[in-house]
Every structure is written in structure tokens, then in C-alpha cells.
Design a protein around this nucleic acid. Structure first.
Lengths: 215, 215, 215, 215
DNA sequence: CATGAATGAGCCTTCATTCAT
DNA sequence: TATGAATGAAGGCTCATTCAT
């Protein structure tokens, strides 16, 4: 009886026309967020780019955050995949190059969304939660490896694997941000080499021998 | 009506009463920004905390950005000092521990301002410029050292010093952010040890020998 | 392009399928208005309950008001019938009990519509006109009786029959509203007895003798 | 720290200028509500009449409902006073004339607000609660009297005093509404006489003798 | 007949900033 | 210097209604 109805009970958008419009809105949002940032983007900026009316937006998304959520989900999925990729224990350098290179590539391709995501994370809980979860995934995975290397070395006095892992992930992540979002100039392959060099140096320190060999 | 008002009316706030008010506003702003963030803080939030009227704010600061600029300047100065501190070339480990530890300490003490600064940097050019300059300072300094170490090793094939330096600074910086702002849990000394371990590992890689010795 | 559409396209809804849909819409509207009130009910709330699409509504009704008009017409017809029912002049008490009891019963059964009708009457002229006409019917009829009773008493100094009648009808009507719509708790038979008592008392006053006898 | 600030923390309006503006807003609201009703009145309609800007309204009232609440409070206070007035048990007719006449006068003077109040009561809980409380006050008071009269008569078989009282109050109230708000034409003194006649007739029925004598 | 996507006018509310006192 | 009232631009969101399929 007293059932509450939301604007979402309006449309399912299963038709091809509806799907088309949703797609155009997403693309328009991607452009708008990229150009104007999270705070700078008004719903108006999105619908103008999409060539639809203001009201149409609300047939598809509850608000500005909802559409960003969808865009972010795509990037997030790619990171999850990267973080879950198998790892060649016999070729640590190769594995590092692959994962770090992949990370930089995804980050650069989605730079606009990454920037917006991080902006939004400052004011909307859902985005910061997703960011934290995303980061967690990498840190935990890295901590496993770091812990294993440290344990194999037989030395007991090193710093916690979680802390080392947090530092390594922070490096890659923020380097990617400075490069892809802030526009710091680096050659992509130099970047991978540098990050692998640092990461490898850390592993060598922990292992006590050259677990990551010079190329 | 015929009372003359001079431009000195809105003056330098050198009187002790004016200075008092300005101080209270700055402290109130620090609190407000810390609690509500950059986008979340309205001028109202500041004046309420300062116990002054709305209009008074504009006697001292042009707008919300102006007061943050002052607060940020303090933190920035500390970073400049850190980045310019002398460097003991004979005790690289000790020097690293000192600078990195100092950085973490400043960051944590000023966590609220750092958070706000970075938020504001996403939408106001002046803050992002200051951030870039601040970061540049560290990166250049580190690049000098990294370059020197690499040059001493006699090897020509390593990655650019600027890129390696960017990665190392990104690591410390973003680790500090995750720790002090996002609330990731790490012991302070473990954090320093971890960061020094990674940084030292990188230098050792570049040097080709143990320039940074195990503790 | 060259397909011709005739006005018959939007036609009389005489087909069994059309009639079905119209019926479902009316029932859905009855539910929706009952649950959400006049201002609170959107076309969406009706079509959702009816299980038809948004556009379909407008194939049957011009707007929200049109469908309420139909629902209200039913209730109105019942009141007209009540107001026009024959009146047993020899058993005034019995006649009063019958009409007042009938009024309460109709009012309670249609409480949801009555509530909505009166809400809509505050902002749409057509509904308030209908309300006025409906009320007029009762008042005029009662005024006839009151006038007759007063005239029979031979006294000339009483208040106008129209005014007394207006008061009596207002009593029954608003009591019914408070009971059926606002949820004031009264036993149905006590209610009839109370209203008849007051009404009868008034007639006795006017008649100057016990035209309405104690039960 | 995380204290929430509302728009109400903005101004206290203790200055004469502020009080002036608040007064103008209230008068403007009275006019606007009177002319346009509850649903029909936009904040814009109020500020235009008051000759102030849109934003100014929100310096004084949280929203449209807040300003009506203040206006309604005045009328409500008058009803409370009426309902609490002393009652001359020796001159029931005089007492009835006084209270009923007073009620009609207040109702007519505040007709615009009464209309708006009742409109708003259909959709905002606070207004309907106030209405219920207001009505309750009268009904309870009347029920006491009706109960006393019934008890004095020694007859046990009458309807509940609460139900009779509800009917009597409903009569006066809705008659006043039809007269003052809907514009039904009645002479004020005839109206009082009619209502007293009915009310008195009811008391006489209950008492079993002429407790309310013919004038 | 049914569908549901598209439209856009319209209202509410916030808040940075100005300015007369 | 301090005050706080006034301003008004700006943006979010709703929902009745239209219309092509």
C-alpha cells in the first residue's frame, strides 16, 4: 500500500533505443568527467554532450554519482583482473614487468576516470570504499609474496610484509597517477624499468640474494 | 552620511585585535577543513567555529581558498626545509631514515591540512601548482642523488634518474597519505624501516654494490 | 509515413481488452489514491499498480484528475440516491436513522475516495463544484423539512431553515469524515444514535413538541 | 568536530531590520496562502509579495511549511484560549452563544489561514497533528459537559458523551468552514442562533428537560 | 491498443559574496 | 573592525505529458 516508488521504477531500458541512450550518456559522462572533473561536472554537462534532455538523464541514473559508479566499475574490474592474474615464480622480473606494465597501461587508458574516481572518493563514501578495496587487493597479494621472500631468507628482523607491500603498491599507484593524471613526463618503458628496479631491489634486500636479476 | 571612509579601514590587521581575529579564523579553518574537507567546508563553518560573524571573514580573507592558502603555506614551508636539509653522504642509511622519518612526521602532524590541500588541488589550480612545485623539489633533489649513484656505477643502461626519483618520491608520499590520511595502520618505525629498505634496495641496484648497508 | 491514422485509433475502449485495461486502471487508481492521497499520487503510481505502461494511461484518461472524476462520480451517485430517497413523515426517527446510517455506511466504504475527493477539492475547481452540489442537495432537502417543521410550530422568530439545515448537514458530514477518514474511534450504532439525538433535538426545538420521540 | 550546520545557524534576526523583514515575510505569506492555497503557493509567491529576494526567505524560514507553522500557531492559540475559557453553568444558552460566536468570529477572521492549514494537513503530518490536537481540546471539553448533563438526567441508555461531543464540535467546525472558507451565505447572528438551537436541543434531549431555554 | 523513451518546465535549496550600519 | 541582512546565480530533481514504434 504505502510502497515507495522511486524514479527507477520508471524504465528498464531493455529496448535497443534505450540501451543506445544509456551508452551515449555513459560516453558523454566519460568525456565530461575527463574535461571538468568530479566537482566541475554538472548533469547539464553530461546531457549536453549526449544530446539528450535533462530529464532523460534521470530516466537512466539516479544522479551524477550513479553514472560515475558504472564507469568506475569498469576500471575496477580491470584492476581486479590484474591483481588476480597468475604469477610466474620462476621469472620474478618478467612477472613484475607484466603486472606493473599492465597497471600503467590500464591507468593511462582510464586516466580520466581514475582522476574522477579519486576526486569523488574525497567526498562520497562509496567511491573511497571501492578505492580502498581495490588497493587492498593489491597490497594483500604483494604482502603474500614479500612475506614469502622474507621467510625464505631466514632473517627474522625485517619490517612487516604488509608495510613493505603498502609502500611498494603506493609507489606504483602514485607514480601512475603523477604520470597519467598530473602529466609528469616519463617514457612508458623507462617507467616500467624504474618501478621494477625499485621493486626488485626491495625483494633482493629481503631475500638476501639476487632473487631479481639484472636484465 | 558625510563620514569619510578611507581604504585604510580595511587594512593590514596589524592591530592586536585584528591579529587576534585573524588567528582565530585560521585555527577555526584548520578545524573545519579537518572535519569537513575542502568541498564540505563553507565559510559559515569557519566563522561559527571562530565565533565571529559572517562578514568578518571577508575583512581578512578574500575567500575560502585564501585562508587555506595560508594554512597550506605552513606545511609547504616545512617540506621545503626538509627537502633542502643537508645530506650526509657517508651515512646514506642514516640520511634516508632522517629525511623519510621527518617527512612522515610532518605529514602526520599536518594530516588534516594535507588532506584538504590535496582535495583542493583537484579543483583549484593554485593548490595543484603548489603541490607540483613541492613534489618537484623532492624529485629533483632525489634525482641528483640517484643520478650520481648511477653514474658512479659506470653502467650506462639504467633508467632515467628522474623517473626513478619520481617513483621513490611517489612511494614515500603516497604511503604517508594512506597512513596519515586514509588511516591505514602501520607502526611509525616499521614504516620508516620499510621505506628505507625499498629506497636503499633501489640505490644498491643502481650502485651495483651495497651502498646502503644492512643495519 | 503514408500510413493514415484516424481519430478512431484513440477510441471508445469498448473492446473487451480495452474495457479490461480501463477497469484495472480504475482499481489501481483507487488503491493509489487511498494510499498516497491526491497530491501524493503520480500517474506512475497508478500504472505500476495496474501493471500497464505509462503511456497506456493516457489512452484512457486525459490526466490524473480525469480518473479521479470517474471514481468520485460513483460515490456522488450514491449520495444523490440517498438524498433523493423517500422519507417516511410518520416515523421521523426511523427516517433519520435510515438516512444518517446510510450516509455513514457509504462514507466509510468509500473513505479513501472521499478523502481524495476532498483533497482534490482544495485545488481543482471541478471537484469542489461537485462537492458543493452534492452538499447542496442534502442541505436543500433538509431545509425543506426544517422549514416545514418550523412553519408548523407557528413561531416566526426562528433562524432561517437554510442555516439550520446547513449546520445539521455539516455535522453529519464532518462527523463522518472524522470517523471514516481521520480515524476517530466511535461505534457505528452509537454514532447513528448520537447524530439522530442531536438532529432530533433540533427538530423538537423547532417544532415546540416532541416530533422526534425518545426511542 | 563533525557537527552538522543548518541554514538556521545563519541568522538570529534580533535587529529591528531583521524583525521587519520577518514580519513582511509573514504578512506576505498570509496573503499568498490566502490567494493561492497551500499547494499553489511557491516560495517565489511569498518573496515577491514581500519585496525581498528568494535567498532572503531562507534566512528566516527553513521552507514553506515553517512559515505556515508560525501563522497557524497564532490561530491555534486563539482556539486554545476559546476552548479553555470559563463557562457559566447558570446560563448555558449565554455560554454557548459566547463560545460558538467567538469560534465563528475567529474562524472568519483567519479564514485564509484556516483554509491553508486544512489543506496542508492533508499532506504534512505536523499540520494534521496540530489540527487533531486542536479538535481534541474542544471535543474533550464538550464531552465533559455532555457527560455531566447526561449523568444528571439519571438515564443510562444514551450514546457515549465522546460521540455526541464529536458530532457537536464537527457541526460547528464544518459549518464555520462552509461559511468562512467555502463562502456559503449565512447571517452571522442567524448562524450562532442556529448552532445554539441545535446544540441546545441536544442538551435538552440528554437532560430530559429544558436545560437550555428558548430565548 | 500498448509501450516506454524523451521532453522540459518548474520548484526547491544552498552558499559565496556584498554592503550599509 | 565587526556585524548580519540581503542578494541571486546556480544546480538538483520531479513528473505530467507527448509521440514514434
Amino acid at each position: 500500500m504505502d510502497q515507495v516508488t522511486t524514479s527507477a521504477d520508471r524504465a528498464l531500458h531493455v529496448s535497443s533505443r534505450g540501451a543506445q541512450t544509456a551508452l551515449r550518456l555513459r560516453q558523454a559522462a566519460r568525456e565530461a568527467f575527463g574535461a571538468l572533473g568530479w566537482q566541475g561536472t554538472r548533469v547539464q554537462d553530461i546531457v549536453t554532450r549526449a544530446g539528450v534532455s535533462h530529464g532523460t538523464f534521470y530516466n537512466y541514473y539516479e544522479n551524477r554519482a550513479a553514472i560515475l559508479t558504472e564507469l568506475v566499475a569498469d576500471s575496477h574490474a580491470e584492476f581486479v583482473e590484474l591483481a588476480s592474474a597468475p604469477w610466474d615464480a620462476d621469472d620474478v622480473r618478467g612477472a613484475l614487468e607484466h603486472v606493473i606494465g599492465g597497471f600503467l597501461d590500464v591507468y593511462q587508458r582510464d586516466a580520466a576516470i581514475m582522476r574522477t574516481w579519486l576526486q569523488a572518493a574525497r567526498e562520497e563514501r562509496s567511491f573511497s570504499d571501492l578505492y580502498r578495496r581495490s588497493r587492498r587487493l593489491f597490497v594483500d597479494r604483494v604482502a603474500d609474496h614479500v612475506g614469502a621472500v622474507g621467510a625464505a631468507s631466514g632473517r627474522q628482523d625485517g619490517p612487516p610484509a604488509q608495510t613493505v607491500a603498502s609502500a611498494l603498491v603506493a609507489m606504483v599507484e602514485h607514480f601512475a597517477y603523477c604520470w597519467a593524471v598530473l602529466g609528469e613526463v616519463h617514457d612508458r618503458d623507462d617507467a616500467v624499468e624504474s618501478l621494477v628496479l625499485v621493486w626488485g631491489g626491495a625483494l633482493n634486500e629481503l631475500a638476501g640474494f639476487e632473487i631479481v636479476k639484472r636484465p
